[in-house]
Amino acid sequence: MTYQPNSDLRNHRSPLMDKDLMIEVVGLKKSFGPLEVLRDINLIVPRGHVVALIGPSGSGKSTLLRSLNLLCLPDAGYVAIGDHKMDFSAGNVSLRDRDLAAFRANTGMVFQNFNLFPHMNVVENVMVGPVTVLKQDKKSARERAIELLSKVGLADRAEAHPEQLSGGQKQRVAIARALAMNPDVMLFDEATSALDPALVGEVLAVIRQLAEQGMTMILVTHEMAFARDVADTVIFMKDGYVVEAGDARQVINQPREAATREFLSHFHGGLA
């Protein structure tokens, strides 16, 4: 293989057996028209690790996250999550709907704006994936959905409709919906950015609980203190590059790169 992962991440790799490797990204590139959003991204995430992606807006972190479950199709590179692999090197891009769907079913994603299905109640939101995609029977899918809803503290709202929930509750339903697919990896795209400050905590608590249970996760976040305390690795991105990646406490508390320091200086109020 001809690729050079970023130095900090490469160190993770050598001692790992393949079964411990959950996410591998090699040479990922993406442009929107003339705008290069991702320029040669390499990433390795061991099973059970939590990675926080930080950086200014427009740095490409959301695009990177969306490339991991192929909501955004890379122009070049290689993405592997668990047993699912996709190669976007030149001439190899015959992307069939079926293959994309299978790849995506293996990753859970939580969005900034929740994106609950408004025509379904809470438990139906959680069940629809397993029933439609995994062909589970409705009864066991419902039982599992209720179980997941209790896990996020919302079993009593199973029959409510999304518009009756607070933002924090909606986001917890969205997390349950993603977990219902039994994904290998959970991706959080600014999951708390649209929430009232008072409701951020309840969502972060659920994410923290998932981390403790060993879920492999990548979070795009502006919650620096949370990134420092919950993530194993923090990756700082700017202009489509990974500028700095390493141990979460080190990157947040003693960033090596000037750009990282500059970015983090805006957050010091929230880092106490």
């Binding site: 079913a105 859970g108 994603m109």
Partner: peptide, 27 residues
């Protein structure tokens, strides 16, 4: 229909027809 609905349906692994039939068209 909000683009987020397409994203959410795709993210749980729905194929084009399932997404249309279960998420987009009913709304």
């Amino acid at each position: 229909i909000d683009i987020g609905q397409w994203d959410a349906g795709r993210a749980i692994g729905m194929r084009r027809g399932q997404l249309m039939g279960k998420i987009i068209l009913p709304q």
